[in-house]
């Protein structure tokens, strides 16, 4: 019991001291996950909207795949990206393995299906509701897409937060493709795993608290956005 209390106390000191190594780990975590989510949005929004709006051969299969890939195990994604980026792999020449870029790629692969699948669902529901009105107004594809994305903005931003929550909290993929190298590819989750196994509970706990705070902020964000949507634009 005492060790745990001590660990908490030390964690508090660590957090308050703005230790530069500690901050570097938090910073890298945010950089990797935010970049991954940004890429996932750039791919996931148009992909999800296209699957929702356009009839094309294989559409059902794509939708099924997106839903399935929403729950991809991070270690499997890590393994696949590892194989692709490893020296003998197809993209080995790029020398990306064990760099933050590799971690961003792996997390983007994890998050893209989440954002695409949620976008598809959200846009499809809204299209079902809006289609006759928009067709009556003779809206072209761009106006249609613009209207749907704008009116779904609150639901879509919660999808983005869901994606970010998944990225920032996962450990398997970044561990495999990043290698948890000190001052290079060490992020919060991998550092927690390492410090815990070394018995360094204070650092592990300190990082855990930061992760929890971020998770809290993400969920608070979702709630605030939903409340705003319900009030301002009557999402419900």
């Amino acid at each position: 019991m005492n060790t745990i209390l001590n660990a908490f106390a030390e964690a508090g000191v660590l957090l308050a001291s703005f230790d530069s190594d500690f901050l570097a780990i938090v910073g890298l975590s945010l950089r990797v996950s935010l970049s991954a989510v940004l890429i996932a949005c750039l791919i996931g929004f148009p992909l999800g909207a296209a699957v929702a709006l356009f009839r094309f051969p294989g559409r059902g299969a794509v939708a099924l795949m997106l839903n399935t890939f929403m729950g991809l195990p991070p270690v499997v994604v890590g393994l696949i990206v590892f194989l692709i980026l490893s020296r003998s792999g197809p993209l080995g020449v790029l020398g990306l393995l064990f760099t933050p870029t590799a971690m961003i790629i792996a997390q983007a692969i994890l998050v893209t299906p989440i954002i695409a699948a949620l976008t598809r669902q959200i846009i499809e529901d809204l299209w079902g509701e809006y289609s006759e009105h928009l067709r009556s107004l003779n809206a072209g594809p761009l106006d249609t897409l613009g209207t749907l994305i704008y009116d779904a903005r609150f639901s879509l931003s919660t999808a983005v937060l869901a994606g970010f929550g998944r990225a920032i909290a996962e450990v398997g993929a970044v561990m495999i493709v990043g290698g948890n190298i000190d001052h290079a590819t060490r992020v919060m989750t991998t550092a927690i795993a390492l410090e815990t196994s070394k018995g360094n509970l204070a650092t592990a706990l300190g990082l855990g608290i930061v992760l929890l705070v971020i998770a809290l902020a993400v969920n608070a964000g979702v709630q605030i956005i939903n409340a705003m949507g319900a009030r301002k634009d009557a999402i419900a």
Binding site: E129, Y130, H133, S136, T147, D151, D233, A234
Partner: peptide, 14 residues
């Protein structure tokens, strides 16, 4: 050059 008001009008979230 036409407009239609539906049996259940569609209201945009605006």
């Amino acid at each position: 050059h036409q407009a239609m008001v539906f049996q259940r009008p569609v209201m945009l979230r605006r």
